[in-house]
Design a protein around this nucleic acid. Structure first.
Lengths: 187, 187
DNA sequence: CGTGCACTTGATTGAAGTCAAGCGCTGTGG
DNA sequence: CCACAGCGCTTGACTTCAATCAAGTGCACG
């Protein structure tokens, strides 16, 4: 759990009391490759944190898989709309390596945020950084070429290419597998 | 100020004490058409709320104006990255009608969020809905055709077309003026 | 040993961008 | 009070980036 506690403190430090209460609310799952953490059309009750392993978040759009996010160790991930709006998610969350995954239930998180001001602040900061990330990603999708997006990925998270099949990476970058293949070949 | 108070209560109700303190921290500006609320390369200190009028948020990308957002009466707007990260913004905020604009300073908002738990919660909910909006918009840019994006705009905010020049709308939709013109002609 | 998955390569297509010209208001200076 | 400059928008010709469709290669593992 050290990795999680460390991640939390980096975002927004908690008092000992809050941290204790918060910390205890996380559950741990050790799952194998290709395990489903969230199935289609169910309400996503958890914010997850991946201690070890890789997961991808994807959904079906006109019969095709769209990878929305790939989370490597040390990252939080969730279905934003489902978790916050409490509506069934079209998203599917699946591990793509054997993984150690922590999760906190929506209701527990909200009760704690209500009880402890500093947990509410932590949540706000988590959402804020997610929002900033979302803006950066939108800009990337709108204005960068396929090539530039791939190169940005190589710079920010080079290990992703070693651990995740190209099909998922292509979809995550918003391009087809073929286009990604061509980009990779010409360098 | 009623419109603002109402908007706040809809997002997350505040206690009388919090609402009083919060309410008093907003300043009002009455500005004419084409007034700059935020200039390039300055830190954006305010979250704004438009009581009456229209503003657009834009920036320069390779010498071209990119309209990132258009805010009509009753909406909040801000430079997300600049406000939260306290870094100079490449964004420019300009009114495009004579407008009544309210704003709260970053430091005031943060002090209040620190002091009052329910104001922190309000801020969290504001950021959350902004995040959800950002996700929806990303999906739209990535998967919808120019035509579909225009039609979505017509459905969600039809008044925008009456009040905002097409150049800005095109840019807001992430398409060129020419493409928008062609879309509009064929119906 | 062969079936299928992960990826590559080639040919063709399509949506929207770019460049260029033109039209019709509107407002302002001679 | 007219003329013309410029803005807001339209229309046309051409280009481009990446998608789609279609084969094909090579490796992994059951």
């Amino acid at each position: 759990m050290d990795l999680l506690q460390n991640a939390i403190t980096t975002i927004s430090p908690l008092s000992t009391e809050s941290m204790d209460a918060f910390h205890q609310s996380w559950k741990l799952w050790s799952v194998k490759k290709d395990h489903f953490l969230l199935k289609e059309n169910t309400v996503s009750d958890y914010i997850y944190f991946i201690e070890k392993g890789v997961t991808r978040i994807y959904y079906y759009k006109n019969g095709k898989e769209i990878t929305e996010w790939i989370a490597l160790d040390g990252q939080f991930f969730l279905s934003i709309t489902s978790f916050f709006q409490r509506i069934p998610s079209h998203l599917i969350i699946q591990t793509i390596e054997p993984s150690e995954v922590l999760g906190i239930h929506h209701d527990d998180f909200m009760k704690l945020a209500d009880k402890y001001h500093d947990i509410e602040r932590l949540l706000r900061k988590m959402v804020t950084s997610s929002l900033i990330l979302s803006q950066v990603r939108m800009d990337s999708i709108q204005f960068e070429s396929a090539q530039q997006r791939y190169e940005r990925l190589l710079q920010t998270t080079p290990q992703i290419v070693q651990r995740v099949p190209l099909t998922y990476i292509a979809s995550f970058l918003g391009i087809t597998l073929e286009t990604l293949s061509r980009i990779r070949s010409q360098r």
